[in-house]
C-alpha cells in the first residue's frame, strides 16, 4: 500500500501549478525515501526533476516501490478542488490502476475523494552527470520572475551573463533591446532578498523565454531561486519546497549558428 499525507494541500497545489505548463504526463516514482518525478517537455528541451522526501510528509507509507503514470492536467484539476488548508492524502494499492486523492477540511466536516486513472507510460530517463557549475546565483524568486516577464516583451530569448560584478539579463528583438543588471547584495536585511553570486569563471548563455516563463510558475514555492550555469551546458533553475524537497528545471541553451 502507498499512502502519503500532507497537513496542507497548498504545497501540492503549488507543485502542480509549477509543472503543468511543461508536462502533460509524468511518472511518479514512489519508494520508501519519497516521491520522485523526472520528465522532459514534449520538445525535449527542458526537464523537470521533482523530489519530495518521505520525512517531509506528515504520514508516509510505501510498502513496495510504485511507478504511477499520471496525467498532469487531470491532477491539476483535482488539486484545484482542494482548499489550501485542507489535508491531502494520496492513496494507492499495490499494482494500482488508479490513485485516490482525499481532501479533508480543517474542521473535519468535509471529506472529498477523487479517484484518477493511472496511465501506462514509456519511461524516458536521462542521466544527469554531477556537474561543478562555473556560476551559482541565488536571488529572490519574485525578482527572477519579474525579469523573465519584462524581458520577454523584447525577444524570444534572454542572455544571462554572470561575472564578479553581478548578473546581467539581456533580450534583443526587432523593436529594441533591454538589459537588467543585478549587483551582488552587499548587506541584505533579509536572507530571502539577497543576491548571492558564487563564481569560478564568467558565463554567458542564452535561453528561450518560453521555458524560463514556465519555470517561474514555481515562484510561490520559495522566496529564493538558485541558478546554476556553466559554459555550453543546460541551466539548472532550482526552488526549494519547504522542508520537504525541491523542484529543479534543466534547460538546454540556445547557441549561435
Amino acid at each position: 500500500m502507498f499512502e502519503a499525507r500532507l497537513a496542507q494541500s497548498a504545497i501540492l497545489k503549488k507543485v502542480l501549478e509549477a509543472v503543468k505548463d511543461l508536462l502533460t504526463e509524468a511518472t511518479f516514482e514512489c519508494s520508501d525515501s519519497g516521491i520522485q518525478v523526472q520528465a522532459m517537455d514534449n520538445a525535449h528541451v527542458s526537464l523537470v526533476s521533482l523530489n519530495l522526501r518521505s520525512d517531509g510528509f506528515d504520514k508516509y507509507r510505501c510498502d513496495r516501490n510504485l511507478s504511477m503514470g499520471m496525467n498532469i492536467g487531470t491532477m491539476t484539476k483535482i488539486l484545484r478542488c482542494a482548499s489550501s488548508e485542507d489535508t491531502v492524502t494520496l492513496r494507492a494499492w499495490d499494482n494500482p490502476d488508479n490513485i485516490i486523492f482525499i481532501f479533508e477540511s480543517q474542521n473535519k466536516e468535509k471529506l472529498s475523494e477523487y479517484e484518477m486513472k493511472l496511465i501506462n507510460m514509456d519511461q524516458e530517463h536521462l542521466g544527469i552527470p554531477e556537474t561543478v557549475y562555473s556560476c551559482v546565483v541565488k536571488m529572490p524568486s519574485q525578482e527572477f520572475a519579474r525579469i523573465c516577464k519584462d524581458l520577454s516583451q523584447f525577444g524570444e530569448a534572454i542572455t544571462i551573463a554572470c561575472s564578479k560584478e553581478g548578473i546581467k539579463f539581456t533580450a534583443a528583438g526587432d523593436y529594441g533591446n533591454a538589459n537588467i543588471k543585478l549587483a551582488q547584495t552587499a548587506e541584505a536585511d533579509k536572507e530571502e532578498e539577497a543576491v548571492i553570486i558564487d563564481m569560478q569563471e564568467p558565463v554567458k548563455l542564452t535561453f528561450a523565454c518560453r521555458y524560463l516563463n514556465s519555470f517561474v510558475k514555481a515562484t510561490p514555492l520559495c522566496a529564493q531561486v538558485k541558478l546554476s550555469m556553466s559554459g555550453d551546458v543546460p541551466l539548472v533553475c532550482e526552488y526549494q519546497i519547504g522542508d520537504i524537497g525541491h523542484i529543479r528545471y534543466y534547460l538546454a541553451p540556445k547557441i549561435d549558428d
Binding site: 522532459m40 520538445a43 525535449h44 528541451v45 527542458s46 526537464l47 524516458e124 530517463h125 536521462l126 542521466g127 544527469i128 552527470p129 530569448a157 542564452t206 528561450a208 551546458v233 543546460p234 534543466y250 538546454a252 541553451p253 540556445k254 547557441i255 549561435d256 549558428d257
Partner: peptide
C-alpha cells in the same frame, strides 16, 4: 540566429 539545443546533446538516456 540562435538554435535551440536538445537536452540529449548533454545528458544520456538511462
Amino acid at each position: 540566429q540562435t538554435n535551440q539545443i536538445h537536452l540529449q546533446e548533454y545528458y544520456y538516456h538511462i
